[in-house]
Design a protein around this nucleic acid. Structure first.
Lengths: 229, 229
DNA sequence: CCAAAAGTGTTAACTCTACACCCATGA
DNA sequence: TCATGGGTGTAGAGTTAACACTTTTGG
């Protein structure tokens, strides 16, 4: 154990949804073995820092992003050589944010920051592609049993926004009528008096997600669960 | 980062099912800050060792147990003082084994090993009670959508064994008829020609779990999923 | 023959799926 | 007025939930 000199890092897979696509936040490395290349935001944990605090800190330092949702994803530490310099074990986190609510900018620790469509990402340094894949998997399955889609949407949205989000992230078609019926039956959406036009066509009713109501229902045994036609 | 001196450990929550109860494997510490106390098997990762290999190694060294099932559970690293000596981040794993298939014995690195009923465990050193709770949660939810119950049973079992396992671990009653119908409908059990008596009463048919068949079905889109009456 | 556990089927309630037409708006 | 997307209901299929008696064995 004395000769254990493993470094501990955190990485964040931060998803954003916009323009009918799922995006992930990458930064251009300012230091490190893959300088000038795009990688997941993240970095080494300080000696007296909680893992989760390290994630928030790195995100601020590198991207100026504050998240709407964050959970631990998986710890990558089986591949001894995942970092070419020395042994690094990374605890990966999954974050969600509405890109509109943040202004990404490379702060002190990155050369650049940008959103990349997940379906355009081919290879990345380290095992970051693997980490992203794991994140997508988690996001997809979690959409079916937790109302996390709302963290990716505007506070006020029309039904087609929500439909498209599910369609996009799950890569499958969904039945508009059945989907709407199901979601509305949960009683966790508030109908506002507004309407909103998306392009041409008839404007849709604007809804908001009532998080408080959802938490109450969850307490009393309700389970958010979606099956698709 | 240079002054980061975090030590990395693994811990294993190994569940066993016997005598109509759910048990967890604990070891009596031979070294360390809680010497002579019962803790989860685990220890420091070697510098050039994959995390998962560290788990297997520690289990052998401390308990002589080889597992039927192992998956990563969660990484505990937010509490800076979870180890009173220095900063230790622990990657916890969830293991399953049929207690009959292993002979636990304290090997080189532990004073003693034993199975403890999970409902008897009150407090443990470090945050090991937390880790166990997380493990139970994962086990309970996973029973509903993966056939991991079979890793806790004998190769040959009668239906009431499976029922009782679900009843015990999920802490709720289940309808025998509906449960049997559901499980049989999956077509992943083989009926043998044997019967087995459990105490007095009519002997039951003996079944085996056809793992190969399950894997095939899973490949072609089948999802093991249980809802309870 | 009694106690204990195994085995078995049906019905009603519910949920899911599939599906098509009219409506409101902007161009 | 046309193109675009929004809003809506129903019937059939499938699934789940509730429920009780007979069978087989060991004592």
């Amino acid at each position: 154990m004395k000769d254990q000199n493993i470094k501990l890092a955190v990485d964040a897979v931060v998803f954003g949804y916009k323009d009918d696509g799922l995006f992930v936040l990458l930064v251009k490395q300012k230091y490190g073995p893959f300088i000038n290349q795009w990688v997941l935001p993240g970095g080494f944990v300080k000696h007296d820092e909680a893992l989760i605090d390290a994630v928030y800190r790195e995100l601020l330092e590198e991207t100026n992003v504050e998240l709407d949702y964050l959970e631990q994803l998986y710890t990558f530490g089986d591949d001894i050589k995942r970092d070419p310099r020395f042994r690094v074990v990374s605890v990966a986190y999954l974050g969600l944010v509405n890109p509109k609510r943040v202004s990404i900018k490379p702060d002190t620790d990155a050369l650049d920051v940008a959103w990349f469509r997940v379906d355009n990402i081919e290879i990345l340094p380290f095992d970051h592609k693997l980490i992203i894949d794991k994140g997508i998997e988690r996001l997809q399955s979690k959409l079916n049993y937790k109302p996390i889609g709302f963290d990716l949407l505007d506070d006020e949205f029309v039904f087609s926004d929500l439909e498209n989000l599910y369609r996009t992230i799950l890569c499958r078609d969904i039945d508009r009528r059945n989907f709407r019926k199901k979601i509305l039956s949960f009683g966790i959406l508030e109908e506002t008096k507004k309407v909103k036009s998306v392009g041409s066509g008839r404007p849709g009713k604007v809804y908001t997600f009532n998080k408080v109501k959802y938490k109450e229902l969850e307490e009393s045994g309700f389970v958010f669960e979606i099956k698709f036609a």
